[in-house]
């Protein structure tokens, strides 16, 4: 029990349970499988982005450009599959390739020129997005191929409500689940993953311990790029239109969700489980407010309050912990 109380995740989980209870009392429709599958599906886009952001935050950096990367990957993918045809695998490959390349550009600037990560990625956000809008003219794409539409409707298993409405585990949700599992294995069981934690804790210590900083940096930013690319594809699957201005501007919301889950901006801290809880909390808030018929105007006020309380609480915990421990810092 004492061990559980030490973890940030425990508190987030508690808040989620309390909220879910309140919402269910007011509207029992919240706790149905149908609503559950719906919410999980519609949050798979934010969820995949959040996985990428978790990696960067753990490594001690920050990435602002991932929304632009997602937009570019999505747009290039859509244009190519419309012009040259293909199937769902080429769509995946295209989105992934664009995402990884743009991530590598970020990593190169950060590693070789030692530019602070926040500055680099704000600059590249503007560059990627600016160039995309200029080349595309900001045009929306509606005419996605039929197979692209059909793929989005696939369900791994299907259930039926009493009224005969079908629902189930969408293929889109399963992409998210797969991504989380792979990311979890990398973070937890590979040398690369441990290197990311080590680098976030202390760059020098990680170098002395024998981690290859260059390779780790490159991996982190290209992985975030890959996640952004996949998220771009998933968003296109969800809404079946490609609008260049629909993703950029959400970067701080995704970072907020990850931070709610306990990842620290100082690096070295954070878990995928925490990130999933953070995204869940935000999803439940938004879905719950709709179900409770609270005006959506209040949404941001609640989210903002929760974030402030959560970060204040964990800062307070950290301070009491630091007071108890005697630390010797060696530069």
């Amino acid at each position: 029990m004492k061990n559980l109380l030490k973890h940030h995740e425990t508190y987030v989980l508690l808040v989620i349970i309390i909220f879910s209870a309140i919402i269910t009392v007011i509207n029992p429709r919240f706790l149905t499988l149908e609503n559950f599958f719906d919410v999980v599906k519609s949050y798979s886009f934010i969820g995949i982005l959040a996985v990428g952001v978790t990696f960067v935050l753990i490594s001690g950096g920050i990435d602002i450009s991932f929304t632009a990367v997602a937009t570019v990957a999505q747009y290039v993918m859509a244009v190519m599959i419309i012009r040259y045809g293909g199937n769902i695998f080429t769509a995946f490959l295209l989105a992934a390739a664009v995402g990884i390349s743009l991530g590598l550009i970020n990593a190169t600037l950060i590693y070789f020129f030692n530019i602070p990560t926040i500055i680099t990625t704000i600059a590249t956000l503007n560059i990627y997005y600016g160039i995309l809008i200029v080349i595309s003219g900001g045009k929306w794409i509606y005419a996605l191929p039929g197979w692209f539409r059909a793929f989005a409707d696939i369900r791994l298993f299907t259930l039926c409500t009493d009224e005969g409405i079908k629902y189930g585990l969408s293929i889109i949700t399963s992409i998210w689940i797969l991504v989380v599992i792979i990311a979890w294995v990398i973070l937890r069981y590979t040398k690369l993953g441990r290197g990311i934690y080590a680098m976030g804790g202390s760059m020098n210590a990680a170098r002395r311990a024998g981690f290859n900083i260059f390779r780790t940096q490159m991996f982190v930013y290209s992985f975030t790029g890959l996640m952004a690319g996949l998220a771009g594809l998933v968003q296109a699957l969800l809404v079946q239109t490609v609008a260049p201005n629909s993703i950029v501007g959400k970067e701080l919301d995704v970072i907020a969700a990850v931070v709610l889950g306990g990842a620290s901006l100082a690096g070295g801290v954070g878990t995928l489980f925490g990130t999933i809880l953070g995204v869940t909390l935000i999803a439940i808030m938004s879905n719950g407010m709709t179900l409770m018929r609270v005006s959506s105007f209040w949404y941001n006020v609640f989210i903002g309050l929760i974030i402030i309380l959560s970060v204040a609480f964990s800062a307070y915990q950290r301070r009491t912990k630091a007071k108890r421990a005697i630390a010797v810092e060696v530069e």
């Binding site: 920050i62 701080l252 919301d253 970072i255 907020a256 931070v259 901006l265 105007f297 209040w298 949404y299 941001n300 006020v301 609640f302 989210i303 903002g304 309050l305 974030i307 402030i308 970060v311 204040a312």
Partner: peptide
């Protein structure tokens, strides 16, 4: 970054 991010979302709300 976190304090002002939370404040930004709250005040926007």
């Amino acid at each position: 970054i976190l304090a002002t991010l939370g404040m930004m979302i709250l005040v926007n709300g």
